[in-house]
């Protein structure tokens, strides 16, 4: 792999690193806020891959996909943080290991 000129491969490599870091954040951390941030990192990595594919194949439709994914991500964070606050009110914890009952 050549370092210059920068092409699709380089963007995909960055995307792969970001995705792995997001997975690691979700797996290793137990703080629910940080777990949600890890999910955001994964979505961002996917977006970067889609934009890179779109740019190097010349199809601008990928930009619409990324826009829709951003919307889904925003809705997901809003609901996720709402659940987190409800959990903290009832259980006084945001540790993922202590919230295992799927009910309140």
């Amino acid at each position: 792999m050549n370092f210059f000129p920068v092409g699709q491969t380089h963007f995909l490599a960055t995307s792969a690193f970001l995705f792995t870091l997001g997975v690691l954040t979700v797996v290793v951390r137990r703080n629910l806020i940080v777990i949600l941030m890890g999910v955001e990192l994964m979505l961002n990595a996917g977006n970067l891959a889609i934009v890179a594919f779109s740019r190097f194949s010349g199809h601008p439709a990928g930009h619409v996909y990324v826009l829709l994914i951003m919307t889904v991500a925003a809705a997901e964070v809003a609901v996720g943080l709402g659940i987190l606050i409800a959990l903290f009110r009832t259980r006084k914890t945001i540790n993922a290991d202590e919230a295992t009952y799927l009910r309140w």
Binding site: T14, F17, L18, L21, G22, L24, T25, V28, R29, V34, M37, G38, L41
Partner: peptide
């Protein structure tokens, strides 16, 4: 990538 590492 550095920002992602710091999140982790």
């Amino acid at each position: 990538v550095a920002g992602a590492v710091l999140v982790l």
